[in-house]
Amino acid sequence: MFRTLVLVLCLSSPQWAYAVAEELTEEDTETWGWRTALFSSLFLSLAMNPLGADEYNASIMMSEDEDVGAVKFGFKWHKDDLSFDLFGAEVTHYYLLGYSYWQSLDIDGQEGVVNAVEFVPVFRFNWSYSNWLSYLETSVGLSVLSRSGINDKRFSTNFQFTDSLSFGGYITPKSSWSLQLQHFSNNSIKLPNNGINFYNFNYAYRY
């Protein structure tokens, strides 16, 4: 967000732009460049749907200790033929393939970055397909982290399990939202196993 604001101000005020450019280090410029390329490529991938997904997902994430912020982009494949009724709710099933970018709020730059890829089967309990509050979800899946720790948390392994609980509803017939508690840990495969919890706001849209 800050870099976007800088770009807008640079275009509107050449003198101010020159002053900012002098203060930016070579590392700042490099970081701005690769992050712009990364996120623009992710947005284009969601728009073009190269994997033939049924739905895309975008998330804003904050760690429980409020020391790590993250964004997530993902694809969902729905398996509606596996649905069944349970206590008046229709249970459906989908797969999520997601990529998330974690940034430490205590450590600037690339030293505080973790990249994560996850594959998660998700079960959804629907009691409505039109209300703002319409479903509950639960999941357990697998993830791989680019680093085995962030800030003072040590996960010991790059491989992590991830599980979650969430509730949400439908904005339109094609779009939905949810609030989610997501946990990452290695299930004590190797110690220390500190793990990390995120509170996520998710937005999804059906292609």
Rank of each mutant, 00 (worst) to 15 (best):
H93C: 06
W77M: 09
S40T: 10
I150Y: 06
V117S: 08
V20M: 04
F43E: 02
V114N: 04
N158L: 05
A89W: 10
S59A: 00
F184A: 08
P14D: 11
L11N: 07
S41T: 06
G149N: 09
S83L: 12
K79V: 05
S164F: 00
T92R: 02
E118A: 13
E118P: 09
V144L: 13
W127D: 12
F159A: 04
S63W: 04
D65T: 08
L136I: 06
Y56E: 08
W34F: 04
N57Y: 07
A21W: 07
L5W: 05
L82W: 05
H78G: 06
L24N: 07
S146E: 15
A204C: 03
P192Q: 08
I60T: 15
G141F: 03
Q110N: 14
H183L: 06
F159V: 07
E64Y: 14
T92D: 03
T25G: 14
Q15Y: 07
I196C: 15
H78Y: 10
D108V: 07
L86F: 02
Y129M: 02
N57I: 01
V114D: 01
Y56R: 04
G74W: 01
F161L: 15
Y135W: 03
E55W: 02
N186V: 00
F123D: 01
L11T: 00
N200T: 15
G88E: 01
Y203F: 00
V120C: 14
S83E: 13
E55A: 10
Y94W: 15
L96Y: 09
Y129I: 01
A47M: 11
H183R: 12
L96W: 02
S188W: 07
M62C: 05
N131G: 04
N158I: 00
D106Q: 10
P121K: 05
A21I: 09
G52S: 02
F123Q: 01
Q180E: 14
M62Q: 11
A19S: 10
T29R: 05
L42F: 01
W102I: 09
C10R: 11
S178R: 08
F123W: 03
S176L: 13
T29P: 01
V6E: 05
D80M: 09
I196D: 09
F43S: 03
E26M: 10
S164V: 00
I60C: 15
V120K: 11
E23T: 02
A116P: 06
L97C: 03
Y18Q: 03
Y94V: 12
G141K: 02
S83W: 13
V71G: 13
L181Q: 08
E30W: 11
G149Y: 12
I60Q: 12
K76I: 12
D106K: 13
L7W: 09
A37D: 08
S40V: 04
V140F: 12
K79S: 08
W32H: 00
T138R: 10
L133E: 01
L96V: 02
G88V: 05
S143M: 01
L38T: 01
L9I: 02
W32I: 00
L105Q: 11
G52N: 01
G169L: 04
N193T: 13
V68T: 11
L105D: 08
Q15S: 14
H93P: 11
S146R: 15
G195L: 09
D152S: 15
D54H: 07
D163H: 10
M1D: 13
